[in-house]
Design a protein around this nucleic acid. Sequence first.
DNA 1: TCAAAATCTGAACGGTGGTTCATAAATCGT
DNA 2: ACGATTTATGAACCACCGTTCAGATTTTGA
Lengths: 205, 205
Amino acid sequence: MRAERKEREFNFRRAAILEQAEKIFSAKGYYNVTMAEIAEASGFAIGSLYQFFESKEDLYSSMILEKFDLMSAAIRQEVNTAKDVTGKIEALIAAQLQFVEKNADFCRIFLRGQSDALSETMTALNQKIIDGYFDNVIFIENILKAGIKSGVLRKVPTRDAASALFHLTRSVTIEWLLKPTKESIVSKKDFILDIFFNGVKNYDQ
Amino acid sequence: MRAERKEREFNFRRAAILEQAEKIFSAKGYYNVTMAEIAEASGFAIGSLYQFFESKEDLYSSMILEKFDLMSAAIRQEVNTAKDVTGKIEALIAAQLQFVEKNADFCRIFLRGQSDALSETMTALNQKIIDGYFDNVIFIENILKAGIKSGVLRKVPTRDAASALFHLTRSVTIEWLLKPTKESIVSKKDFILDIFFNGVKNYDQ
DNA sequence: TCAAAATCTGAACGGTGGTTCATAAATCGT
DNA sequence: ACGATTTATGAACCACCGTTCAGATTTTGA
C-alpha cells in the first residue's frame, strides 16, 4: 500500500472520530464526555483514539480549531467577493448565518468555548479562541472603517460598533440555538441589517 | 443562644463561603475547582461545607441563583422608577452596566453558565438560567412594546429587538471583561443607546 | 503464502476529587 | 460547672475516567 493512500485512510478515520466527537461534545460539554463514549460512537476502541490524538484535550482542541479555520475562511471569502461596504456587511451576516445553520453542533461548542475563555485558566486553546474572537472583531472593524471613510456610515466608534454587530448576529444565533425553529435562521439577516443600520427610533412622527 | 441569632450566624458563614466560591469559580470554572480549594479559601474544613450545602453542585447553583435574583431585582427596580420609555431603557442599561462593574466575577460565571446551558444536559440550574434569560428578554420586550405603542420607537419585531438590546449590552460587557480597563464600563451606556436608537447609517449625505 | 511491521484492542493502572463519618471541639441549657 | 447537643474536622473511602501497554489482529511487501 502506498504511503499516500495510507495517509488518506488515516485522515478519513480521524475525521470520522472528530465528527462523532462534535455531536457528543455539543450535547454534553467537554467535562461530561468520556473517551469511552467517543470511542464507542466512532466505532473504535478507547486505545485507538490515542493513535489519532495525543489526549482528550488534543482531540477537543483539534476539532474546534480546524472547524474554526473553515468558518473563518468561508466567511471571509464571501465578504471579499462583495464590492461595496453595504454588500460586504450583508455578505458577512449571510455567511455567518449560513454557517450556523449548517453547523449548529459546532456553534454550540464554540459559543461555550468563548465563554470558557472568559474565566478558565488560559490554555493554548483558550488563547487561540480569544485571538480568533479579536481577529473577527478587527475584520469587521475594518469594514466599518471603510464605510465611514466612504460616507455610507456615520462616525461611530469602530471598535465598539464592530463588536456590537458581531454580538447582534450572535444574539440571533443564540435565540435560534435555544429553540431551533423550522424556518431558516438565514431569514434573520434583514432584521440584523435593519437594526444595525437604522436603529429602533421612530423619526416619522 | 436564641435560635434567631444562631440562624444569623449560619447565614453569615454560608455567605462567606459563597463569596469565596464566587472568586474561585470565576477564575477557574466549575470543573477546575475542588471542594478542598473552597474550604481552604473560606477557612473551613472540607466536611464543614456540607453543613451548608448538599453538594458541590448545590453550592454552585445557590451562588448563581441567589445573585441572579439580586441582579434582576436591582435592575427592575431602577427601570420601574423611570417614567417614560426612553428613560426606562436608559435605566435598564445603566443598571446592567453598574451591576457588571460591581460584580465582575459573578458576571464571568453567569455568562459562562448561559453558554453552558446551550449544550449541557438540562439540569435544574441550566433550566433556571434559560428561564431567567427568557424572563429578561421578555421584560425588555415589554418596554419596547410600550415604546412602539407610544410612537417613540418604530415598528420593529419586539422579540428580536429585545434580544438585540440584551446582547448589545452583553457585547460591551464581554469586551470589558476580556480586557478590563480602568475606565468605568458605565461610560459605555451612551454608545449602546446611540447604536440601538439610531443605528450606524449616515443619513446626512 | 508467510513473517515482519503496523494497527487495534480493552483490561488494568493510577491519579483525582466529591463525599462520608467517626472523632474532636465548641456551644448550649441548667 | 458540667453533661448534652450541636457543629467542625480531615483522613479515608470509592467511583470515575484519562491513559497505557502487552497481546491480538490486520496489513504489507516479497
